[in-house]
Nucleic acid binder design. Structure first.
Lengths: 197, 197
DNA sequence: GCCGGGCTATGACGGCCGTCATAGTAGCCC
DNA sequence: GGGCTACTATGACGGCCGTCATAGCCCGGC
């Protein structure tokens, strides 16, 4: 996962995202974030005067940018991109992590949605923005593969929904089964959306 | 949503599930549960000597049973059941709630997975059991509609994954768009799995 | 040389948490 | 009536939380 930035501020945002991924927003303390980032506790209120809301918001923003960058990278790695290939790559990122690092972490955006959708309007919006920042490049990639524009958005939403749900099930079961299943079952449907082939 | 049971114990389990649905596990306090259930605080340690873990576990068990019962009910309401019809009914339960009651609540099993998968092994197992209790009747229903046995399990997993992910996105966006999208896009794929029609 | 601002350090505060300890009440059976 | 069990009531404890207040460090600019 993308190296921690160089400055202490970037490191804290990155650490916040990692801890939220593992324990959720509520169980992630500001002191934990500073410790995980190797940053002084006093820097928290210096860099994030908006408090925890601001820190969580920036962590989600980082997560959205990261997901978008991964999509671009997956596309660059494929010489003959297909919708099913892209989805398989997105899923494989998670199965790889789970098989090598264990099932400790999930998606930070999902965690923030669960913990904060009802308690913090700003965090809820940040989660929605992160989903959008992730969905958009997926939809654009589908268009680039020949999927009609009016179907690219819905299919991108379907891909991300299935992936998010499968991440939840995989973590609960400590088994990548759900992830590999959605990749296999959804592949043909995705490829069938490009009219040419 | 299923009426609160008659005894104070059932009411507390039910209330725990409702509060977890809204705020997550960590943000749901034992005192809140008792208050929401109209039950005396002292009853908590009487009925749930295992503490919060036990209460959360029973709430997840309740959620799993509830989801399974809903699947059975959806089947009973359809005179000519189809896979897409079942999935549409499962999705509609959520769109109906969101349109009439607002986007306050999500799935308690998802919330428990996000908050506790890494911190409480017993709760993680309870979440996995709840997913299983939900998936099984869906798969059995698919078999009853003519879906080959070897595909019913994977398709049930796909249905629940997509639904869970769409719930997350809908709650973040405060828009049922993701839910209606997955229902529409997945319908044809599901119906195509029954060989006869 | 000193001054100002970016950054760090640390303790305190009020609040909520899950859990425990202790005591009290209500009802039923002998 | 006595005792036992099921349930309720309430206060305390230790711990962690986010936030604030205050002070100190460090270094470039003048």
């Amino acid at each position: 996962m993308a190296g921690s930035g160089r400055g202490p501020r970037e490191r804290m945002v990155f650490s916040a995202a990692q801890l939220i991924r593992r324990h959720g927003v509520d169980a992630t303390g500001m002191r934990d974030v500073a410790a995980h980032a190797g940053a002084p506790r006093g820097s928290l209120q210096h860099y994030f005067p908006g408090g925890k809301d601001q820190l969580v918001g920036e962590a989600l923003q980082w997560a959205g940018r990261y997901a978008a960058a991964r999509v671009a990278r997956f596309l660059g790695d494929m010489d003959r991109p297909t919708p099913s290939g892209l989805f398989a790559a997105m899923v494989r990122q998670w199965t790889d992590e789970y098989e090598t690092q264990g099932f400790a972490a999930g998606c930070p955006v999902a965690a923030a949605t669960v913990d904060c959708a009802e308690s913090s309007e700003t965090t809820r919006r940040a989660a929605a923005d992160a989903f959008a920042a992730w969905t958009r490049p997926v939809a654009e990639a589908l268009v680039g593969m020949g999927v009609p524009a009016e179907r690219s958005g819905p299919l991108a939403t379907l891909m991300i929904s299935s992936l998010e749900g499968a991440i939840l099930m995989a973590r609960a079961e400590r088994d990548v089964r759900a992830l590999t299943t959605v990749a296999r079952e959804l592949g043909p449907l995705l490829d069938a959306a490009v009219p040419g082939a």
